[in-house]
Design a protein around this nucleic acid. Structure first.
Lengths: 284, 284
DNA sequence: ATCACTTACGGGTGACGTAAAAATC
DNA sequence: GATTTTTACGTCACCCGTAAGTGAT
């Protein structure tokens, strides 16, 4: 059986081209590498290099061997990361979401389990979410649509509604509802990390301008001292402890102003995770 | 980096269930295995086993690790076999075929190269041929149809025609051509290793009986001393040195009595192989 | 008593570094 | 002269086997 260290060294040689350079990166002496490559040839019973007096070059067999070596090393690295994730996932729950609202809903409903596990959540793009779910970096993700795949299960979770937030001086303050069209062209202050909502308001109000603020407290101060309209959602309002009485919230009446979120997880998820999902859903 | 020997031992433990049993198959002492598994856990920083006083069982993490280990070992084995095949394929040419005729055509046309390489040919089923081509056990195969795949190239090679072979006493001896229907129900002597021809004559003459002989010389003797009809093809007749004057060959006029063969090889084949194929085709 | 795992101890292989030589740029 | 590869030699790590111990069947 071929030692894995030989494969590492072969792959390094393919990458760096010379023994010296490879030895540098591997933190090894270059005579050691020279010996290793000879040993590898001997063990495989095959010439892997063209040997010139002062130069060592992979021949076609060597290139083939190096490509296999790289694959094996990648497999080995994946094994380590997946094992580490597997044990981490016993005591930790990583949730990825395309919007903050569903996370605000989920975290309190896990209250009873907080002592047993650490929950971490993440807000990012759908592409990253799916990638992370595939690689077990997330155990579940929240998307604004189900996925049709044999590999994943999609469960409808919650529908979030968008509201306009204005102070009492704003012309729309007396409205019972509002539309995107009516507000298009105005300037908005908004939270920067709203996920899919961002693209939605941009698309629905193409003539509007949006001033985004990453920091929630700063945002709060700004909106308090500004006449610019802002946004809210039913979920956010529900969990927002300090409601500002000088702000009025008005629902958008457009049907696009509601987003239904779905919990996606692997069908191969273990029973513990599926139990948690049931708990989350039943807590709505 | 995890030593490959640890992965072997882990995979063995998964297969055999106990350290003692595994040690047996690995030709190792069982204390050595015990130490190895502890070391593996330490290196991964993870518990892989449930440890009872007298029993060692893989936990879920261990099962995951073992499955990765098996994959890595399989990759490693594939690397060795593919490298061995790669060097062998520099000086050897392995051809697989679904019928003997095309091989009879090919081998002489490689005459000029016989000194540089050893040619080996094989007659088997389409399934085995495709499997062997995929695994680089054959560099090219001969099928009775092209394959539609991005991975393979199919080149029309030669069409072989089936003949009836009878002695002068046979009722059909004076015919200029014959059909399957006319011969259906009779008893035939035939060579056992005719590949796809076998299924063809069975299908076209469902009421006929076939006596197959594996040995060519024995077949020759039998046909010489028998009144039973037999088969021939244009290619076989062309390369058959000792034509028996007491036998008459009559072409089957059915369109199914001709088979067109195709040379299949990987698109990733090297230029040397493609050159050989050009040579083979131009020699028809 | 046998079987299965672990711990302890000693040995031999082998992977590494240093040193030195040969050859090329 | 600087760089690259190869060979030689000594060292240390590590993987293995033997022997002994513990607990379960």
């Amino acid at each position: 059986m071929i030692g894995i260290y030989l494969l590492e060294q072969l792959a390094a040689f393919q990458e760096y081209g010379t023994l010296s350079e490879s030895a540098e990166h591997l933190h090894l002496s270059q005579p050691s590498l020279s010996r290793s490559m000879q040993k590898l040839e001997k063990q495989l019973g095959v010439k892997l290099f063209e040997r010139h007096k002062n130069k060592l070059i992979l021949n076609d067999t060597g290139i083939l061997a190096a490509s296999y070596a790289s694959r094996i090393l990648a497999d080995e690295a994946e094994m380590e990361t997946q094992i580490a994730l597997h044990v981490r996932n016993k005591t930790a729950l990583s949730i990825g979401s395309c919007a903050p609202g569903p996370l605000m809903n989920i975290l309190p409903s896990l209250a009873g389990r907080c002592s047993e596990m650490t929950v971490s959540s993440d807000l990012t793009t759908e592409e990253e979410l799916l990638k992370g779910l595939y690689a077990n970096q997330y155990q579940m993700i929240i998307l604004n649509h189900p996925v049709s795949s044999e590999e994943y299960t999609s469960t409808e979770y919650v529908t979030e509604h968008l509201y306009l937030s204005v102070n009492r001086m704003h012309p729309a303050a007396s409205y019972h509802s509002i539309t995107f069209k009516e507000m298009d062209g105005q300037n908005f202050i908004m939270y920067a990390k709203v996920g899919v909502w961002d693209a939605l308001v941009q698309k629905k109000m193409p003539h509007a301008k949006f001033f985004r603020q990453e920091n929630l407290e700063a945002l709060s101060e700004i909106t308090d001292n500004s006449d610019l309209p802002s946004f809210a959602t039913d979920i956010a309002l529900h969990y927002q402890s300090d409601r500002h009485s000088n702000r009025i919230t008005i629902p958008f009446s457009d049907s696009d102003a509601s987003i239904t979120f779905y919990i996606i997880c692997k069908v191969s998820a273990d029973s513990r995770l599926k139990q948690i999902i049931r708990q989350i859903i039943s807590a709505v």
